[in-house]
Design a protein around this nucleic acid. Structure first.
Lengths: 346, 346
DNA sequence: TTTAGCACTCAATGCCATCGAGTGCTAACA
DNA sequence: TGTTAGCACTCGATGGCATTGAGTGCTAAA
């Protein structure tokens, strides 16, 4: 594309992102010093429209970027931006002080993500399939209630209350815990062998009833039962965006946010390999979300991807800013999680 | 109040709750068979307005209940309602199938609450102060990371990753766990004596570093660190209510929902002793939420109140229905939690 | 005490004229 | 050939104005 066309397109996208109003030729000539008259710009605009980069809401209005226009902007025109010192500092501080367990890390990430961008943040924790058994503990809670706690090697902790016959003594539970720990150490769902199970049942046969429940719990933890969970943040502050001045818009947005499946798809879709992915107007989804864009990126522990974070906003979002925030946050998140699970050393 | 006035007021409240439109004298005469003409009803309405039970949005409109009118309705006129068989069945089924741990119980409760009422559900889990220590387990996760798991007698489980020197062996951690369990069994924050601590440190002195971190974790769990948490559900389906046809309303509602402190106050305020409390137009709060009402009730385990649930909706809410739902849900919630913690037997 | 009748009020609705931002086209200009 | 000034045209937005109708309050009769 000729350089001047690019400049006009850039001006249109930037101005529209800033003001949310369709951009006219006069505005461009005045605000963005291209050194040509409105009439010339009008000609360029007519061309850009023909090429599909911009659109006209109605005849007597200015131009608005089309999905294709945003795409071109993001791919070729946009100037990458870094976070400001203040912002980086804020993030670092928030994470240092207030973050103790994984849940808090996730929540904090979402919170900051939405706070920094003014859009809605999404944090997806993927099932960490293939994780292995680390530890089980049976804790007697009352005369016929026992808590089963299962720890996985990735740091996940699951607990559940089970019912146990009154005849079981605490020392029995202790024994059960010990044997299970010894036998199952380090195993994943797949490599629990039948012979091993037989061995366990042989050794602990007299407490079959309890054992059944405990094993069920362990298998649930190991198996795929731990669905993807999605954390949303900042749904509220987004409705201050001018696009949400009419209620219908708010409703469609909320109905999008209700469809977890769709959100997961948006977060993972095709972004799995590259870093930050930008999906404009819901490119590549069956669902109809043409007015929204998603900026997403996966996070990982020592190279293994274990989830994604993303920002959902109107197509008219500040891509440069959002991309830099998402990029920074994934790195930060990965680092924090690695530190939690693998120790400060590596 | 004379009986006919009551009937007129009842008609106005009922009709307004059903239609969200100001109610005129004609409508009442036609729909609610009082056997008198619109003119008579107009006279009654003038009286009711003078008494402060109803209001006129503007001269040529019908009447709308005032806060006082709703209050009178709820206290004297409203017919208590039971849940339908279907609804009770739905609740029971949802709880039987899908509920495994406390978190799920809370979430399910909120979900059903909002689903059945079409308003926003709030579930508050109060700090269960005064709960006592049950069990601690140190699980080695990597060469210099250890997971500390603390179980409380009320069934709460907290876990945290701590950093441990590489010199610590798994068997050391085992010993630590054992000693801590033996010494701290059943204690609350208050009755951990200094002498006891000295005893522990004497016995486990050589692992002071780890012990420090573990004790910190235990004290955090015992102490007040476990803040009240509030779960919100069905924020989205509420905006289908006609009051939210204009965006300003949506915004003020969302800003209310953002103020957790306010929500806690609304849920606990004065409801602590009675069962279901109805607070109309935010009666008795400093905050200005005159357009909303809250129906709340505490839930408990074996008589000890440990949280509240509630429904937030426009003042024009279907009080009869909401009250019955909230009432049923607290009972259900208490029962479910008791079953989880105390066993099915009692 | 109730009610029919009637004048009155006022939000809502729809119509119309006006306004103005912005366009596309044409013709003149460099 | 590319640029620009000029101009007619489009169309949403805005505001004024009349109309409508639901609903009221008052008065006088039953």
């Amino acid at each position: 594309m000729e350089e001047r066309k690019q400049k006009v397109l850039l001006a249109i996208v930037q101005d529209f992102i800033a003001t949310a109003e369709p951009v006219g030729s006069r505005t461009i000539a005045k605000k963005y010093g291209l050194g040509v008259s409105p009439a010339t710009i009008r000609n360029e605009m007519a061309d850009l429209e023909e090429l599909g980069y911009i659109e006209q809401p109605h005849t007597s209005a200015g131009r608005v970027p089309s999905v294709r226009g945003y795409r071109y902007y993001v791919d070729y025109l946009m100037q990458k931006r870094e976070l400001s010192r203040d912002e980086e500092e804020l993030i670092r501080r928030e994470f240092e002080i207030k973050v103790r367990d994984v849940g808090q890390v996730i929540q904090k990430t979402g919170q900051l993500l939405s706070q920094l961008t003014c859009y809605t943040a999404m944090v997806l924790t993927q099932q960490m399939g293939g994780s292995s058994f680390k530890h089980v503990q049976l804790v007697p809670m009352s005369i016929n209630q026992t808590m089963v706690i299962v720890v996985m090697d990735n740091g996940a902790v699951h607990h559940r209350m089970i019912e146990t016959p009154e005849s079981i003594r605490p020392s029995d539970l202790e024994t059960l815990s010990k044997v299970l720990n010894a036998k199952l150490q380090g195993l994943t769902m797949e490599n629990i062998k039948l012979t091993l199970l037989k061995e366990i049942y042989f050794e602990l046969g007299k407490h079959k009833q309890v054992l059944d429940l405990a094993m069920e719990m362990i298998q649930d933890s190991l198996g795929l039962k731990d669905e993807d969970k999605i954390y949303l943040g900042g749904v509220f502050n987004m409705i201050n965006q001018p696009e949400f001045h009419n209620v219908e818009r708010v409703k469609t947005m909320l109905s999008i946010l209700e469809q977890e499946k769709l959100l997961c798809e948006l977060l993972t879709g095709q972004s799995w390999d590259k870093g930050v992915t930008v999906r404009i107007g819901g490119e590549i989804t069956d669902y109809d979300i043409k007015d929204y864009s998603v900026v997403a990126a996966p996070y990982s522990i020592s190279g293994r991807k274990i989830g994604s974070i993303g920002v959902l906003g109107p197509t008219r979002m500040d891509y440069a800013k959002v991309i830099s925030v998402v990029d920074f946050m994934t790195k930060n998140l990965s680092k924090t999680l690695e530190r939690m699970f693998l120790g400060r050393g590596r």
